[in-house]
C-alpha cells in the first residue's frame, strides 16, 4: 500500500507540471481554436531562463535563502516567456487570423523548430545541469517519502491554479476571455478587443509554461532543448484528456495523466507506459469525445 501511495505521489508531482503546461494549450485553444505546437518549446525556454537566472544569482549573491532564488527564477522565467509568448503571437499567428486554422498550425510548427534550434545554438546541445537550489529535505510518513522539492511544486502549482480560476471567473479581463471563448464574433461586437484578449491569453499561457519549466528543471536537475517536445506532447494529451478549452479540465487532465503514467510504469512496464497513457486517451475520446470535463456542444445547424 505504501508503495502505491508513493507512486501516486510521484505521479501527482509530474502531473502538476503537465497541468501547468496544459493550461496554456487549453486557453489558446479556447480562444482561437489553435493547437499551439510551439507551446512545449516555450516551456523549455522557461526552463533555460530559470537556469540562466540561477547562474546569474550564483555569480552575484551567495547564500541567499532558497525561496528567494526560487521566487526570482520563477518571476524571471514568467516575465521572459510572457514577452516571448506575446512576440510569437504577434509575428507568427496574428497575420494569420483570417486564414484557415491549419495555416497557423504550420507556423506554430515552424516556431517550434526555431525555438529548439535557437536554444541549442545558444546553450549547446548537451544536457545542462540545474544546480540544486532547494535543500534536500525529505518527509517520511509510514514508508512514504516526500521531498521538499515536491512540496514546492505542489504549492506553487495549486496557488497558480487558484489564481487563474479566480482571474477567469472574477476579473473583467477573465470574463472577456470567457466571452471570446464562448463566441468570438459576439464578444467583438460587444466591444471586447479581440487582439488584446488573444495577446493576454498568450502571455498568461506562456507565463504558466515558464513556471512549469522552472519547476521541471529544479525537480529533475537537468534540462535539454529537446524536453519541450515530449512534455508538450504529454501536456497536450492532458488538455484533450480533460476536455480541450476547459480550464479545470486541463488541471484535472494533467494531474490524471501524471498519475496514470506513474502507475502504468510501476505496475505494467516503464517501456509501455506511454502506450498505456495513449490507449486510455483514445478510449476516453471514443466514449466521451469531449474529454472528462469538456462541454458537449450541440452541432450548430
Amino acid at each position: 500500500m505504501s508503495l502505491f501511495i508513493q507512486q501516486l505521489l510521484n505521479g501527482l508531482t509530474i502531473g502538476m507540471v503537465y497541468a501547468l503546461i496544459a493550461l496554456g494549450y487549453t486557453m489558446v485553444y479556447g480562444v482561437i481554436q489553435l493547437i499551439n505546437f510551439a507551446h512545449g518549446d516555450v516551456f523549455m525556454v522557461g526552463a533555460y531562463l530559470a537556469l540562466t537566472l540561477i547562474w546569474a544569482f550564483a555569480a552575484v549573491v551567495t547564500g541567499a535563502p532558497f525561496w528567494v532564488v526560487l521566487t526570482a527564477l520563477l518571476l524571471f522565467g514568467m516575465a521572459g516567456c510572457a514577452v516571448l509568448g506575446a512576440l510569437i503571437e504577434r509575428v507568427a499567428y496574428k497575420p494569420l487570423r483570417a486564414s484557415p486554422r491549419l495555416a497557423a498550425l504550420i507556423t506554430s510548427i515552424g516556431v517550434s523548430f526555431f525555438l529548439q534550434n535557437a536554444v541549442m545554438l545558444i546553450y549547446g546541445s548537451k544536457d545542462q545541469s540545474v544546480p540544486e537550489i532547494i535543500p534536500h529535505v525529505r518527509f517520511e510518513f509510514h514508508g512514504v517519502s516526500f521531498s521538499l522539492t515536491q512540496c514546492v511544486i505542489f504549492l506553487t502549482s495549486i496557488a497558480l491554479m487558484v489564481f487563474l480560476t479566480w482571474f477567469i471567473q472574477k476579473t473583467k479581463l477573465g470574463k472577456a476571455m470567457r466571452a471570446c471563448a464562448e463566441n468570438f464574433e459576439a464578444a467583438n461586437l460587444m466591444g471586447i478587443s479581440a487582439d488584446r484578449i488573444i495577446r493576454v491569453t498568450f502571455v498568461m499561457g506562456s507565463a504558466l509554461a515558464a513556471v512549469a519549466g522552472g519547476l521541471f528543471g529544479v525537480y529533475y536537475g537537468s534540462i535539454n532543448f529537446h524536453d519541450g517536445y515530449l512534455a508538450g506532447l504529454k501536456a497536450f494529451t492532458a488538455a484533450v484528456f480533460g476536455g480541450i478549452g476547459s480550464i479545470p479540465g486541463a488541471m484535472v487532465g494533467g494531474v490524471l495523466l501524471g498519475v496514470l503514467e506513474g502507475l502504468g510504469a510501476a505496475y505494467l512496464s516503464s517501456e509501455w507506459k506511454d502506450v498505456f497513457a495513449f490507449v486510455i486517451l483514445i478510449a476516453i475520446l471514443l466514449f466521451k469525445p469531449s474529454g472528462i470535463l469538456g462541454e458537449n456542444l450541440p452541432e450548430k445547424v
Binding site: L3, Q6, Q7, N10, G11, I14, F216, Y220, H226, D227, L230, E261, G262, L263, A265, A266, S270, E271, K273, D274
Partner: peptide, 20 residues
C-alpha cells in the same frame, strides 16, 4: 532486467520497483 526510453525524465516508478 528493465529498459527505459531515451529522452524520458521520470524514472522514479521504475526505481521504486528496483529498490524492492
Amino acid at each position: 532486467r528493465d529498459a527505459i526510453t531515451q529522452g524520458e525524465k521520470d524514472f522514479t516508478p521504475l526505481l521504486t520497483k528496483v529498490k524492492s
